[in-house]
Nucleic acid binder design. Sequence first.
RNA 1: GGGUCGGUACCGAAGUAGUCAAACGGACCAGACUGUAAAUCUGGUGCCUCACGGCUUCGUAGGUGCAAAUCCUACCCGGCCCA
Length: 396
Amino acid sequence: MDKNKSILKHNVVEIIDEKSLIKRLASGKKLRVKFGADPTSPDLHLGHIIALDKLRQFQEAGHIIIFLIGDYTARVGDPSGKSKTRPILSEEDIEKNAKTYFDQVGKILDIKKIEIRRNSEWYQKMTLAEVIKIASKFSLSRIVERDDFEKRIKTGSDVRYHEGLYPIMQAYDSVMLKADIEIGGTDQKFNLLAGRIIQRRMDQKPQDIITLPLLIGIDGKKKMSKSLGNYIGVSEDPNEMYGKVMSIRDEMVIDYFKLVTNLEDFEIEEFERDLKLDENPKEIKERLAIEIVTRFHGKKAAEKARERFNLIFAKKLVPEEMPEVEWKLGTCNDLPQLLVDLKFVKSKSEAKRLVAGGGVKIDKTKIEDIEAPICIHDGMVIQVGKRKFLRIKAKK
RNA sequence: GGGUCGGUACCGAAGUAGUCAAACGGACCAGACUGUAAAUCUGGUGCCUCACGGCUUCGUAGGUGCAAAUCCUACCCGGCCCA
């Protein structure tokens, strides 16, 4: 069937075990598809979209999507190399995060049909004896093989005992959920495979796993992630979103088309061809930006974002819409002090550097004299750098 | 537990008594060039001061000394080897 074909082919890196998965899909049964969600950061970004799109395919084919909120594992902390012990989230925080999270997920999946579970359901009441029993299903040498552990051990950095527990817990989640399939990024492969091992040893049919490509962040180097700050959030302001897309490297455009838009393959191939033919990449990138902003904010917002973008950066004009601050008129101060007062800049030293470097404009005029007194008037526009604007309004 | 090496700014890393707010690289910010792309180039990146200068900072707490990131003592934390 067509649906199954795209499940197996679209944006997939690897399937283990493919034959088994094909069989499962052909069986006509409702399959249980597990996906782990992190309750520590409720902000969804484009990198998450790949997995959500895959889940949507499953959902549309009538399978059951299980969102596992790792509320208990969050306390352990996914071994990420340097993550310190994470703060323990209160139940309240987790609830709050989950709500924001699923509000965003709702843009892509039918949330009503999702099974939402949390692993505190079983870990909360587990005894040490049980933990030991589960841990006994997994060999230490296998854990140590996980490439990031291996690297850290080799380079002499610190690997804590509990970090090795993380894959085991994630694996046991699959047992508790009786997962038929688990999906995750390629960086999750080890953990996904661990699920298969433990399920098998606990007399379950091992889940099939699908690894998905990772989206490179806007820095062009590393996986998109919140903590690296190289992400484009799905709830981000349309203008911001548009600008961020425009700032990615040309070489990444096709990847972004493939991974985060719903365009048909042939359309993307066309762009690919055009790029090779030396078409101006800007136009194709523009198309990408529109596509992405439209997906999350609608067509109107996307058009507006494009206009604003061209206005500011191509024509170098000042946009109509910008943040505004009410301020008493007639206040006069030197520019650095003013920037600090307006909370536009953290410290006065920083403000001075910016001004001296020619990065600050008032009403389109560059101010380089640190000492020149500036008097505030109604509608005054302050610009720092290329993209930060602030308008001052009279305080009544 | 013993031995040994180490803990420096966002990260990596130099410095081992005065010339240290601390080299260098990455990251980031601003400027130039552009397509807010990349690459490149310039300036900048503790705080306060127009400036002279002052203040806080080199794991933590004390000490020596005119002067400490640098020396001493105790403590905390990490690597490696041995047990």
